[in-house]
Design a protein around this nucleic acid. Structure first.
Lengths: 237, 237
DNA sequence: TCAAAAGTGTTCGCATTACACCCATGG
DNA sequence: CCATGGGTGTAATGCGAACACTTTTGA
């Protein structure tokens, strides 16, 4: 960072991008927060994010900050809101662009400005900095809407998964319960899943932790199938 | 506007809000553009919008600029995108927040920076400034998505309207045709419409221009009905 | 009286729903 | 052998899709 001063004829607000990352551990929906190490709201929890640099887009900024602060690399970022209330940051006028992402829940650790990074149950989040509580509500609402039309949920799962996992995922995200038979039927007939090929290598375990009971058949996301069923992806239930 | 200089320790992008206003004249979907009177892209067409001031939110900014440049006052503004590509404005680094709105098509006239303001058929827009062509595509996509779930379309109509008008509206917006009987059936059973009370005053005309043929029954939007049918608003067809 | 738009009801097929039993696995 | 979760089919119902004729009105 250089130390020079930047001057403008008119006042400029600062721009930040924040990243609401949802995760899924197989049973419940989580959200990734960092604990602020300094500045306003020190020790409060917040979404990874930070000030946009001049040679990046807001989306690139969100991705970069997420990586710097948690080590996480995500694929899809989706805009869910712009937060521009005048007093929302005590330091200066700050406008934040909010993105959300979905990720398989993995170990994360703090870096940078973050004392630590941690997954929190979606409905048991700690006190949050700035207007981040509001942001969470909006991100969640947007994501719940999107998941009906885009097979966005699969980003929360591993490469291979069982129908049971998919069902638990949708149930966690939407907060409802489905009939297992109807769920499988519908999910399969959307054509976005294909049976995962029997693993040639190990032929076993694969690191999956099976709970108890019969093992589910493994599927994986079928991008082909999704592409040319143009828009027919509707998960209503 | 004061003339002072504003200095910051780090470079700040400028922030603007732009407003994509869709209109409906009873037959086709339009979009409101202004012709730029100066600056880069002079004489090109663009969306109403401009730089955010320090004591307003981005949404308030969009509303203010829209009014200053076209005289239009709209109710609902909906975020549809943030545009932050590095080179999108030749003057300086500018990040634009895009909102869309729906309005009954009325006479508009330019003001301010705008040489003139004019409604354009949605698929016959003139050359546009900056990345506004891209913005239009995104705004349209977002609006088409929203209209399925929120009775957003009625903002495009007057206080009272016929089912035929509603149907033409949906057909224009979505670019499809519906069976009239099925459309009426479904639209009525959503419960968001109620019969407009027979006008006590004039008892006639009311300024509506009837084309030819039988006159349709008049309805109006029923906010009550919409509120407590929580989420059941789905226009799939 | 003709053209244009509005109003209305039925049938068919598919998709959603509800529902129960057996199988595989690990403890 | 028992608890847990996986896998599967059928019957009833509801909703969307298709479809034609009559009425009103202005020209």
């Amino acid at each position: 960072m250089e130390k020079g001063m930047y001057t403008y004829k008119y006042p400029h607000a600062a721009l930040t991008a924040d990243c609401v990352v949802f995760g899924f551990d197989g049973w419940s929906l989580k959200v990734l927060l960092i604990q602020r190490a300094k500045g306003p709201y020190e020790s409060f929890w917040a979404f990874p994010g930070g000030f946009m640099e001049m040679e990046e887009t807001t989306e690139e900024c969100a991705r970069r900050e997420l990586c710097e602060e948690t080590g996480l690399v995500v694929s899809g970022l989706r805009l869910f809101g712009v937060f521009s209330d005048v007093g929302r940051d005590p330091r200066e006028r700050v406008v934040s662009v909010g993105y959300y992402a979905l990720a398989k829940e993995v170990e994360v650790e703090g870096g940078d400005d973050a004392a630590q990074a941690q997954w929190w149950e979606i409905d048991r989040v700690p006190p949050m900095a700035f207007d981040h509580r509001t942001m969470l509500r909006q991100a969640l609402r947007q994501m719940r809407r999107d998941i009906h039309f885009e097979p966005v949920g699969f980003e929360l799962l591993g490469e291979r998964f069982t129908l049971g996992e998919v069902q638990r995922l949708y149930e966690s995200v939407l907060g409802v319960r489905f009939d297992r038979r109807n769920f499988c039927k519908k999910m399969l007939q959307t054509g976005v899943l294909k049976a995962a090929e029997a693993e040639a290598s190990v032929g076993e375990g694969e690191g999956k932790e099976w709970p108890v009971g019969r093992r589910g058949r493994l599927y994986c996301f079928d991008r082909e199938g999704y592409e040319h069923m143009k828009g027919g992806f509707r998960l209503e239930f």
